[in-house]
Computed example of a mutant assay.
Amino acid sequence: MPVITPFEAIGAALTEEMRRDPRVLIFGEGVATKRHDLLDEFGPARVRNTPLAEGIIAGTAVGAAATGLRPVIDLLFAPFLCYAMDQLVNSAGKLRFISGGQFAFPMVTLAMTGGGWGVGAQHNHNNEAWFVHSPGLKVVMPSSAADFKSLLKAAIRDNNPVLFFIDLGLLYQAGEVPEGEHLLPLGKASVLRTGSDVTLVSYGKTVHACLAAAQQLAEAAISAEVIDLRSLKPLDEEAIMASVHKTGRLVVAHEAAKMAGVGAEIAAQVAERAFADLRAPIIRLGGPDAPAAASHPLEQAYAPSAEAICAAARSICA
């Protein structure tokens, strides 16, 4: 299998889907500048730079989707989604329901999030939980180059609006990507490592911290199962419950703020549905309730480390 970066995987997914379906187009902040190959092949009618006006970009995409096109928009950094909340949440997320299913809104919104580049608070905010909480929207956040490609292809083909979060720290971490047609269904988690003593659940770059923690735990004779959610909504509840039923212990870790994050929802569901299986309290690890720091060391300290995840797992396996 070829080894490529998530940035290249995104480009490959866009190329394949635009060749397959003439209704697919991409526009947004700098897309024609960043993706010269797409512009050369598909032309300015389907690959277009826009002004820095996120609300207008998202609103145009909603209208395009309602007319039968399948737009992909790039709003660059996740905090910029604030300028497009009305269009994404009140229009894209609700109009299919309000219309009684007469309209579909097949649109994908790309946004970079998370630490790794020291871009500061106005460009770094893990706000994915906002959109998980918004009816009608789907939310994905992959952790590997292969999943970036296959999930983006699936998102483009979905008839609902999808928020596709790109973890900045992973953008140029190369990995193997299968050649040819390869799609993953939205809402299907991946068990990256099987275990019997404790379940580690995460998404985005924190998945790799969980895998490193699992290796450290193995050296202490603790068997950790690692689940990469990949999709935050739909959420693969059954994969989580099956693992907790087996291990009886759960640690949920993500870079986003711990308060009201995705980890809180997972902890609540496990407490409601699998309380009898638990052998120890659920532990949530997340970022602080504070804007992201521009300092690289502080930025890294905000995210759960492998050592912190390992310590949490050891504490409930004692």
Rank of each mutant, 00 (worst) to 15 (best):
T113V: 11
D228A: 06
A92C: 06
A294I: 04
E219T: 01
V24W: 11
G261P: 08
L285D: 02
C82W: 09
V24C: 14
E237R: 13
G116V: 05
V162Y: 00
Q122W: 13
A294K: 03
V198T: 03
F103Q: 13
A268S: 15
Q173F: 14
A306H: 04
I227D: 06
V198S: 02
P6E: 05
Q102H: 15
Q216L: 12
L285N: 03
G63E: 11
G180F: 11
A271D: 09
T60E: 12
E17K: 08
S202M: 03
A293P: 00
G261M: 07
D37C: 08
A214Y: 02
D228P: 05
E307M: 06
D158F: 03
E29H: 02
C317N: 03
P71Q: 04
V262T: 13
D167H: 13
L211E: 10
N159T: 13
A253E: 02
P178C: 08
A78K: 00
R230S: 02
R230M: 02
L285P: 06
L186C: 03
A306E: 04
L88G: 04
R193D: 03
E176F: 10
T113P: 08
T50W: 06
L95G: 03
A224I: 04
A224G: 03
R284C: 08
R19Q: 15
T5P: 12
G116C: 06
T109I: 14
V3C: 12
D74L: 07
T33S: 15
F27C: 07
A129Y: 07
G101S: 11
P304S: 08
D277R: 07
I73Q: 01
K34R: 13
D167I: 00
A189G: 03
V207Q: 01
A145E: 09
E128A: 15
A145F: 07
G28A: 08
P185I: 00
G195C: 03
I4L: 12
D21T: 04
F275W: 13
R19P: 14
D236F: 05
F27Y: 14
A290P: 14
P297N: 09
I282S: 03
F105A: 11
L69R: 09
F165N: 04
M85E: 05
E8K: 10
E299S: 07
T33Q: 11
M18W: 04
A129M: 14
E128V: 11
P106F: 13
E128Q: 15
P281V: 10
D197T: 00
V62M: 05
Q269I: 15
A209K: 03
A189F: 02
E237N: 10
G118Q: 02
F148M: 12
L278E: 10
H245G: 14
A218F: 00
E219I: 00
A129Q: 11
T199E: 02
G30H: 02
S91D: 14
P6C: 12
I266Q: 09
E272Q: 14
R96Q: 15
G63P: 10
L163N: 08
T15H: 13
F164E: 01
S243L: 03
G115I: 09
K153E: 14
L298R: 04
I283Q: 05
V262Q: 12
P185E: 11
I240V: 13
A78D: 08
G93A: 05
P6S: 11
A129F: 07
A308T: 06
I156P: 04
C82G: 11
G175D: 11
P135N: 07
L81H: 01
T206R: 01
P71I: 06
Q122M: 12
V252M: 06
A308H: 07
E181N: 12
L278N: 09
I266C: 11
